[in-house]
Write a protein that binds this DNA or RNA. Structure first.
Lengths: 107, 107
DNA sequence: TGTTTATGACCAAGGCGGACATCATCTCAG
DNA sequence: CTGAGATGATGTCCGCCTTGGTCATAAACA
């Protein structure tokens, strides 16, 4: 799934014009992006947290030459998924009961 | 920053009613969530990819009791940020000296 | 819709950073 | 007000991470 698919989804569900939906999606992503670039954590309840972590200098290597190099300290973005993603497929009790909407009504 | 802040951002920029904005943001997140739950990768160009990885069984332990346990195989969601998050400020033609201005960007 | 552009995947090898198991309780986001 | 989520403690091993040319594809453009 790509960005375009999400846009189509918005278009489909809300009826928002494609270009508006696109602008909207981009804006949301951009907002998150900018926030992270400022080093601030983005908490999305029911989804996950984007955390900016400071990595110290460490030793890496050029995989091509094998040359050992110094990886400079840097900020990295780490995503910590909400527990909703924990793949507990909660089997209700009987496998025969397929009528249960497999999964996540919690919202 | 939380979800509410993003909603406010949408409200501010687009003028969409708060509740509509909220519904929209939730819908987008939900779409991503469901896609990931199906094991499909979500690619957001210019932002990052959400990848579902299959983790094999491994040994862990109960940090409370120290009891060694078997961690069951499971799916985990991994986020791989786009390279735009790489904090290299790529100056295309930054003038005369090739020297990096000490302590200018980064954080 | 078709074409162009640019973002990103890939792959090599090896070392080590850190993510993650559990579970009760408190905090704060919704 | 409610409940989702953070926290913490410890040891293990997973996979991230480096470069860079080239190719695939999403996105931007017409």
């Amino acid at each position: 799934m790509t960005k375009a698919d999400i846009i189509s989804e918005v278009f489909d569900k809300v009826g928002l014009p494609k270009q508006d939906a696109e602008e909207l999606v981009e804006m949301i992503l951009d907002t998150i992006k900018l926030t992270l670039k400022e080093g601030e954590t983005v908490k999305l309840s029911g989804f996950g947290n984007f955390v900016v972590r400071q990595k110290r200098s460490r030793k890496g290597r050029n995989p091509k030459t094998g040359q050992e190099i110094e990886i400079t300290p840097r900020s990295v973005v780490s995503f910590r998924p909400s527990m909703i993603f924990k793949d507990h497929v909660i089997e209700t009790d009987s496998a025969t009961d397929g009528a249960v909407p497999a999964g996540q009504p919690a919202e």
